[in-house]
Design a protein around this nucleic acid. Structure first.
Length: 556
RNA sequence: UGCCCGAUAGUAUAAUGGUAGUACAACUGUUUUUGGUGCAGUUUGUCUAGGUUCGAAUCCUGGUCGGGCAACCA
């Protein structure tokens, strides 16, 4: 099942650890989101890595919500995160919360205070920052730094008991104010926040900071490999300092480069702005790089897992081509999506030698990539059809294989027709194309001996139903909106959404399956949107088909 | 200009001192009742200057370039 692939650097580390009998060969990872937003494709990379690597080495993965900041977090996010991970196809071992450890973390903090390794700081945020120095100048101690252990104990307990207002005091680790690593200049461990927490309610008014809480949570769970992104590299000495001073389980932190993708943004802060300022309809807008957005867009879990595998894991900054993601979903959907015919921009085609009241039922396989076609459906055919407007040219160019005066095409699953004439309306637009059909050329029983270069899709005008179709394009006009001058929102693509309110669909599509991918032949992959109502389907375009003709015709 | 991380085709990612490979993208050709898919092929690369070595993408030194770090965020 698994093909040969060289190991990434984390797998090498783990195989080394197993070989050396570290942790008795046990592998336990964790995925630790803060529940303050929806998961995006970058998180998917991390999820696939953490769950994938554990599974590969017979280990397990915990889901731990890093919920140490009550003012930004909410159960709405907890629920969406769980749903997204499950949808991607992963099962966590334990569902845990940093807030479950608040008592234990408080005890750890007391222990450090008692060891003289932490102290209560009275200075304001500004005073603390000023005393920290700069990267090129060492910091200076604040008056609080020399407090006695007894006094620290009393003040820290007072903080917990709610004796002080927000911002009045903090607990700091006593490390090294002259360290070249800014994170070691007596980092904050606890701050006062009289805020309601989504799980612990009003039980606490002090909350631990990330650097203190995260490592000790890893330790408490006996996480063996704590994998995070590159911006935490400078935090690692601090991660190790706390574990060492508390003599806790020695979890190890490893870092990899986060995912960046062109034509989108990937930070929660920016995604939140797009939602709050209504540049998109919500976190699950199909243009968003969120997992919920991709799901609604029609992406499959498999395609996202394959994408995560293909982009690789390394420690250098990257900007992945959107085209790779698109390749992954086409690859999956080509094999599974049911083919249907839909006309987005209609033009009437009249077959003059076809009996006027007659209807035939043509057979169309669901998926030609599958053995036996994955079943088939009936498609009504009659003398009047809708075809795509750009499948007719009044004055065809050399390599145009579609309809034009005198030209012949195959109507998919039906007959070959020859264009005899066309009609224009008052404003000069082509309104009807008149053809004759070749009766012996019917699909499957073609004895005409005629070979045509083009095949076009169509929908029977009498039997056609209508649907709303939403066409999506990239959300931003530029590859890396975060790195352009000015605000990233200045680079939003104004044409990222095109709505076709009345496309003609073949009748079978009036009963679409919600979780199925469809390929609208020659147009792209589509999936049913949750805005659909009975009798009024709405389809999202997941991705276009590759279109070498569009490329060719744009050249000239 | 303090500390840390990094640099291999357009984009990613392998090669762990011994033939620079793979995928996507781009381009050819071929097949095809989707200008899709499939198949075959082509183009494009080790940041730089030294050093070690029979041999360097890999090890060492200097430089250049890119990124990160001074939140009571994670």
């Amino acid at each position: 099942m698994s093909e040969e692939r060289s190991l990434n650097f984390l797998e090498e580390i783990i195989e080394d650890d197993i070989r050396n009998g570290k942790n008795g060969g046990r592998v336990l990872t964790r995925f630790p989101p803060e529940p303050n937003g929806y998961l995006h494709i970058g998180h998917a990379k991390s999820i696939c890595l953490n769950f994938g690597i554990a599974a590969k080495y017979n280990g397990k993965t915990n889901l731990r919500f890093d919920d140490t900041n009550p003012t930004t977090e909410d159960v709405e996010y907890v629920d969406s995160i769980k749903k997204d991970i499950q949808w991607l196809g992963f099962k966590w071992d334990k569902e845990l919360y940093s807030s479950d450890y608040f008592d234990q973390l408080y005890d750890f903090a007391l222990e450090l205070v008692k060891k003289g390794l932490a102290y209560v700081e009275d200075g304001s945020a500004e005073e603390i920052a000023a005393a920290k120095g700069t990267p090129t100048e060492p910091g200076k101690p604040t008056p609080s730094r020399s407090r006695s252990i007894e006094e620290n104990l009393q003040l820290f307990r007072g903080m917990k008991e709610g004796k002080y207002p927000d911002g009045a005091r903090v607990l700091r680790a006593k490390i090294d104010l002259a360290s070249p690593n800014m994170h070691l200049r007596d980092p904050l461990m606890y701050r006062i926040k009289h805020a309601h927490h989504h799980r612990t309610g009003d039980q606490w008014c002090i909350y631990p900071m990330y650097d203190f809480a995260h490592g000790q949570s890893d330790s408490l769970e006996e996480i063996t490999h704590s994998i995070c992104t590159l911006e935490f590299v400078p935090h690692r000495p601090l991660y190790e300092w706390f574990i060492h001073k508390l003599n806790n389980f020695p979890s190890k932190q490893y870092e990899f480069a986060r995912l960046n993708m062109n034509y989108t943004v990937m930070s929660k802060r920016k995604l939140l702005q797009l939602v709050n300022e209504n540049h998109v309809s919500g976190w699950d807008d199909p243009r968003m790089p969120t997992i919920s957005g991709l799901r609604r867009r029609g992406y499959t879990p498999l395609s996202i897992r394959n994408f995560s595998e293909r982009i690789g894991i390394a420690r250098r900054e990257n900007l992945i081509d959107l085209s790779l993601l698109e390749f992954c979903i086409r690859e999956d959907l080509n094999k599974s999506a049911w083919r249907r015919m839909v006309v987005l921009e209609p033009l009437k085609l009249v077959i003059s030698n076809y009996p006027e009241g007659k209807t035939e039922l043509m057979e169309g396989e669901n998926n030609p990539e599958m053995e036996g076609g994955d079943g088939f459906r009936h498609i009504p055919f009659s003398s009047e059809l809708w075809i795509e407007r750009d499948d007719f040219m009044e004055e065809p160019t050399k390599k145009y294989f579609r309809l034009g005066p005198g030209l012949m095409v195959r109507l998919k699953h039906a007959y070959i027709v020859r264009c005899d004439s066309f009609v224009k309306d008052e404003s000069g637009n082509v309104s009807e194309v008149h053809c004759t059909y070749i009766p012996e050329s019917r699909s499957g029983t073609d004895t005409s001996g005629i070979h045509v270069k083009g095949t076009i899709h169509w929908v029977c005008a009498k039997a056609a139903q209508t649907a709303e179709i939403r066409l999506y394009d990239r959300l931003f006009r530029v590859e890396d909106p975060s790195n352009e001058d000015g605000n990233f929102k200045d680079y939003i693509n104004p044409d990222s959404l095109t709505v076709i309110s009345n496309a003609f669909i073949e009748p079978d599509l009036m009963n679409p399956e919600a979780d199925r991918g469809y390929q609208f032949i020659r147009k792209g992959y589509f999936s049913l949107d949750s805005d659909s109502t009975p009798g009024r389907p709405v389809f999202n375009r997941t991705v276009t088909l590759k279109d070498t003709w569009a490329k060719e015709s744009q050249k000239s």
